[in-house]
Amino acid sequence: MGLEEKLPAGILLTSVEKLVNWSRKSSFWPATFGLACCAIEMMAAGASRFDLGRWGMEVFRASPRQADLMIVAGRVSQKMAPVLRQIYDQMPDPKWVLSMGVCASSGGMFNNYAIVQGVDHVVPVDMYLPGCPPRPEMLIDAILKLREKIMAAPLGANGRKMLAAREERYGKPVSPPGSVPSSYAVDKAKRAEWLKAVAEGREEQLRIENWMRRQDHLAEVEK
């Protein structure tokens, strides 16, 4: 069952910040802002193979007033930009924006008069997801990283002061929250491996080596 079954003596001690952040990240409702090709991959992520329902996100809220995550999926044209801003303004706090695809993150391959070169010109973005279009697994990875970021976010002005004090005492984390890929974040051993690699500055190499190890035909070539 859930967390509540594992509590000794039925008492849980936590901070308000952790509780609030946990509830915010677990009940994360996306708003439909599918524009172009990325929208189709977003729908595929919500469909049965790459089920977003595993995290309770399969129902895309049609009304921005009921949503807390806006996934900007697709190219934002000059005509659409004011609409984007209006939808963002209609969302109640707390809200997050995930710009999905290169067109939303930076204008993508369309470096021209008609496309806004990155939605961060219009709305503040919390997570950028490159890809043209990003695979549904990449979208899920971005959502999981964003959830980690939310879990680690300070709550209020006091929370920010406490975070600053904590960082002064223990130093900044090697890898800021929300930057460990979800495939490494799930396993304690893999997470430790990743953090070690980040400290040495060779996390990409680690990724490539692990990928090579998984490719049977290349492992044979190596031999």
Binding site: L35, A36, G74, R75, S77, Q78, K79, M80, V83, M109, F110, N112, Y113, A114, I115
Partner: peptide, 22 residues
Amino acid sequence: GYLHTGIEKNLEYRNWTQGTTF
């Protein structure tokens, strides 16, 4: 017009082969 991307104009600045990706 909310998704107008100017693809046709972009094509004029790329090779014939690169046009496929646009």
